[in-house]
Measured scan of single mutants.
Amino acid sequence: KEQQNAFYEILHLPNLTEEQRNGFIQSLKDDPSVSKEILAEAKKLNDAQA
């Protein structure tokens, strides 16, 4: 469930490039146990690119 939530949120971050988004999603698939950390990174990058 946590992985699904992170997946959904990353898909809807407006400021990520397609490449960045795909990278985060691939990381989620590779290691779902760190989905919280991956989501935090994605949000940080999204904010930095706002």
Rank of each mutant, 00 (worst) to 15 (best):
K1I: 05
K1T: 15
Q3I: 04
Q3Y: 13
Q4V: 07
N5I: 13
N5W: 14
A6N: 06
A6Q: 05
A6M: 06
A6S: 09
A6K: 04
F7D: 04
Y8S: 04
Y8C: 02
E9S: 13
E9I: 15
E9N: 09
I10V: 10
I10W: 01
I10S: 01
L11E: 10
L11R: 11
L11N: 09
H12K: 15
H12S: 10
H12T: 10
L13G: 00
L13Q: 02
P14V: 09
P14R: 15
N15S: 06
N15K: 05
L16F: 01
T17M: 04
T17F: 05
E18S: 11
E18L: 10
E18G: 07
E19Y: 10
E19D: 08
E19N: 08
Q20L: 02
Q20R: 01
Q20S: 02
R21L: 04
R21V: 05
R21W: 02
R21P: 00
R21D: 00
N22A: 13
N22P: 00
G23F: 15
G23T: 15
F24T: 00
F24K: 00
I25C: 02
I25A: 05
I25F: 12
I25M: 12
I25V: 11
Q26N: 09
Q26Y: 11
Q26V: 03
L28A: 03
K29D: 06
K29H: 08
D30W: 10
D31S: 11
D31N: 12
D31F: 13
D31V: 06
D31G: 09
P32E: 08
S33N: 09
S33V: 05
S33K: 10
S33W: 11
V34R: 12
V34L: 09
V34N: 08
K36N: 11
K36R: 13
K36D: 09
E37D: 05
E37K: 14
E37M: 14
E37F: 15
I38F: 03
I38S: 02
I38D: 00
I38M: 03
A40K: 10
A40W: 15
E41D: 09
E41P: 00
A42Q: 00
A42P: 00
A42K: 00
A42S: 03
K44Y: 09
K44M: 12
K44I: 11
K44L: 09
K44C: 04
K44T: 03
L45N: 03
L45F: 07
L45E: 03
L45M: 07
D47W: 15
D47L: 13
D47M: 14
A48K: 13
Q49E: 06
Q49G: 06
Q49V: 07
A50W: 11
A50G: 10
